[in-house]
């Protein structure tokens, strides 16, 4: 009985999970240790400036106090456990991190002082750098466009920002909100003009210097 099993043949995307082709009806859920990333928790703990997540007691206060946990595919509590146990791919592909609205309820309520919102930020950064986030999901698109806009102009311009985001994710939504945009424009609360700081060079220099220092550090 020493036959080695090829773990990949059991992989969840394999067709053999199916039941007459209806793969969704019966799903195989099992995790092999070899599929996990043992250093994931250290990576995230470092990125989130907190090793306190190691001390999570899985009480679920974060999930219960979270205003959007009922939309997430894994509740925040589960995410913490998955991070600790190295479920890297599942965590980075989850909708949870992108649904976090950064309201900080969990951070305030956590009885073990875990800065869960910061963990979510760390996961967002890790997901972006791993190229893992869901493609047409608006939040990462918004984040990236926002980032680019501030980099170039120093300020964010809400009108152009939202336009871009809707066009990239769901153009239908932009149409749905034309009335809203019109009313905002009419009340002087929205322009399509791009805002920017007078001195755009200084900000570029600042961010350029950060890049240079990071490169030096990497070497």
């Amino acid at each position: 009985m020493d036959t080695t099993i090829d773990v990949k043949s059991f992989a969840p995307n394999g067709k053999q999970n199916g039941y007459n082709g209806k793969a969704k009806m019966i799903n195989r859920k099992i995790k092999y240790e070899s599929e996990l990333s043992s250093d994931f928790k250290e990576t995230i703990a470092e990125l989130a400036h907190g090793e306190k997540l190691y001390g999570c007691i899985q009480c679920g206060t974060c999930s219960a106090t979270c205003p959007v946990s009922h939309y997430m595919d894994y509740t925040p509590r589960k995410i913490i456990q998955m991070v600790r146990e190295g479920f890297r791919d599942d965590v980075l592909k989850s909708s949870t991190v992108w649904l976090c609205a950064s309201c900080y309820s969990c951070t305030v309520e956590c009885p073990k002082g875990i800065k869960i919102t910061d963990v979510m930020y760390a996961l967002k950064r890790e997901a972006i750098s791993a190229g893992y986030f869901p493609k047409r999901f608006p939040t990462p698109v918004l984040a990236e466009n926002f980032f680019a806009q501030v980099l170039n102009n120093g300020r964010n311009s809400e009108g152009p920002l939202l336009m871009k985001m809707y066009m990239k994710t769901n153009p239908f939504n932009a149409l749905k909100n034309t009335m809203l945009a019109f009313r905002l424009w009419k009340t002087g609360r929205l322009t399509l003009k791009t805002e920017h700081t007078k001195d755009r060079k200084s900000l570029k220099k600042l961010l350029g210097s950060i890049d240079k220092q990071k490169e030096a550090l990497a070497k």
């Binding site: 950064r125 984040a143 300020r155 700081t197 001195d199």
Partner: peptide
């Protein structure tokens, strides 16, 4: 004078050091 964007919640999701720098 000539303040710039604080970075809000979105910036932190992309690059932390830069978010704090701006």
């Amino acid at each position: 004078n000539d303040w710039n964007c604080c970075g809000a919640t979105a910036y932190m999701a992309v690059d932390e050091t830069k978010a704090f720098a701006i």
